[in-house]
Every structure is written in C-alpha cells, then in structure tokens.
C-alpha cells in the first residue's frame, strides 16, 4: 500500500493530447517517487471553470462539481479528492463550501444528482496537489529524494491567482505567498522571493477572448522575471503555464520584446531534481525548451 492515497481529479486540460498533458506526466512521475497513489475518479466531468458563468448559473455549476463528489464517494468512500488544476480545485472547493453552508442548495443539488442515479452523503475534502506536498508530505520528506539539485538555476515562482485566491494554501498570505519559492529552494535551485509579479493575474480566459488585455498582463509577468535575473518561471496552475508560455511570440511582435523564457510546473522541477529523465519530467512538452533542465536530466 502506498504511503498516501487519494481520489484524483485530473481535469480536462490534463488529458492526453490536451494543453496540460505535460503537467500530468510529471505529476505521475513525482508521485511515484513520493509514494503517493492517485486513483482517478471514474468518469469525472469538467468543473465548469470560472469562465462558464454566462450560461452556468448557480445550481448547474455546483451540480457539475457535485457529480464528481458523488462518483468519488461511490468508488472511493472517505478518500480526499486531489486536483492538480487550480481551476478544478477552486471550482470544487467553492461548491463544497456553498453546499455545506446552504441546506436549500444541498437539497436542490441532490435532487438534480438523482437524475444521474447519484447521491452525496458526505462532503469530501478538496485538496490541491501543492497542499498534499506541503501539508501531507512536507518539505523535509520532499527534499530527501533530491538526487540532482538544480544548482545555480534562478527561477521566478509565479503563483498566479487561483491556487492563491480566494482560498489559498493555509498559512500563506494572499499578497506574498512563499510556498513556491520554498519549493524552488527545496529542489536546490535559486528562488527569487522579491519577484513582484508572483500573484499577478495572467488574464485567465481573456487570453482567448480578449488577447490584447491578457497579453498586457502576461508581458508584465515575464518582464519582471527577466528584471530579477530569472532564467525560467515556475507555476502550479495549468492556465498560468499555458498563457505565460505560448503567447511570448505574439507579445514580442506587439511590444518589440525578445521574450523566450521557459515556463515550468513545480512537478517538472521536482522530477528532474529527483533524477528522472527528460521524458519523465515531460520536458518535451514545452514550447520554449528548458535547456538547463534538459542538461541536468541528461547527466
């Protein structure tokens, strides 16, 4: 039996061939090293994300998340649900909070769930993968597995919004959370605690619908990383990762900048530090290759 076991909610972007598939690959490899067993919730569905609001309304949105709770309870009663995606985690946690605080909403949700032959008896705990790492495993244990410290690599910890607000990680401040810098330090790299764009919004879904607004924000996020001497950026959120990485070419065209900075997941840094291969860390999933990490992984 694994040391830590959870019901796993990977989310749409982590699926094979989707925009955060590299995140999932590296998480799987990281979990193997840390003896964490993630069992996917069978037939899980989309959380609705924040951007679905025009059509979602209140109850349909919560019912979508509640279906995942019900499936998790049916197949893995009592297990905590772990999400790797910031939006999945936030959406599910919000539903948990609303249903717990409103008997009407709970009753309505149960009535809708009945149509799918499901029910909820107990509210599951909803955790983000970084909470599992920090709270259940701990920095000391995480550090024990480091075989190849990422020495000399300067990394800006870009926390972004949705793992930080409105819930956040316990004990951290909304304005200056430190856990990501501590993780960078833990893998032997050099964190930049004074990186002043660490909780600036990447524009979220507006990167699709109104790219000029989102890209103005992304430009600030990247510029500040360069100004602080970073050679790569790390983030815990799939949308932050995609938005900050994939539009650098377009931003360069608009603003005359020369951005070309890799944007990684914390799990990728950990896999490389744990001695995993470039493939284990899904380094081939970057649009902007992280050459320094590839070199370390190949050593």
């Amino acid at each position: 039996m694994a040391k830590h076991e959870y019901a796993f909610y990977p989310g749409c972007s982590s699926q094979k061939g989707a925009s955060a598939s590299n995140y999932l690959t590296s998480v799987e490899s990281m979990c193997k090293t840390l003896d964490v067993k993630l069992t996917e919730i069978p037939d899980w569905n989309c959380c609705g994300a924040s951007i679905g609001y025009a059509e979602a309304g209140e109850l349909p949105r919560h019912v979508m998340n509640a279906r995942n709770f019900a499936l998790s309870e049916q197949h893995m009663p009592g297990k905590e649900i772990v999400a790797t995606c910031a939006a999945c985690w936030l959406g599910a946690r919000e539903t948990r909070e609303r249903l717990t605080h409103s008997d009407t909403l709970m009753a309505d949700t149960k009535e809708a769930l009945k149509e799918a032959g499901l029910t909820i008896n107990e509210m599951p705990e909803i955790r983000h993968m970084v909470e599992v790492l920090i709270e259940d495993i701990g920095f000391d244990e995480m550090k024990k597995h480091v075989k190849k410290p990422l020495e000399g690599v300067k990394i800006a910890g870009y926390v972004g919004c949705q793992t930080n607000r409105p819930f956040g990680v316990a004990g951290e401040s909304f304005e200056n959370p430190m856990y990501l810098d501590m993780m960078v330090d833990m893998v032997g790299a050099t964190p930049i605690p004074e990186y002043d764009m660490k909780v600036t919004c990447c524009g979220g879904a507006l990167a699709f619908s109104e790219p000029e607004k989102a890209q103005a924000q992304i430009k600030d996020i990247i510029e500040s990383a360069y100004d602080h001497g970073a050679e790569m950026i790390v983030t815990p959120c799939p949308l932050c990762q995609a938005n900050v990485e994939i539009y650098q070419g377009q931003i360069n065209k608009t603003y005359g900048t020369k951005f070309n900075i890799p944007v990684m997941y914390y799990s990728q840094l950990m896999v490389v530090a744990y001695g995993g291969s470039a493939k284990d860390a899904a380094l081939n999933g970057q649009l902007i290759r992280a050459r320094r990490l590839e070199e370390i992984a190949a050593k």
Partner: peptide, 15 residues
C-alpha cells in the same frame, strides 16, 4: 466565449 465554454464542457462532460 463564456457561453461557448459552458456548452463545450457540458455537451460531453469534458472540454
């Protein structure tokens, strides 16, 4: 986009 996203996600259950 908001409407499109919700329809896309709920049509098959996944985006």
């Amino acid at each position: 986009f908001s409407g499109l996203f919700w329809k896309n996600a709920t049509q098959t259950g996944r985006v």
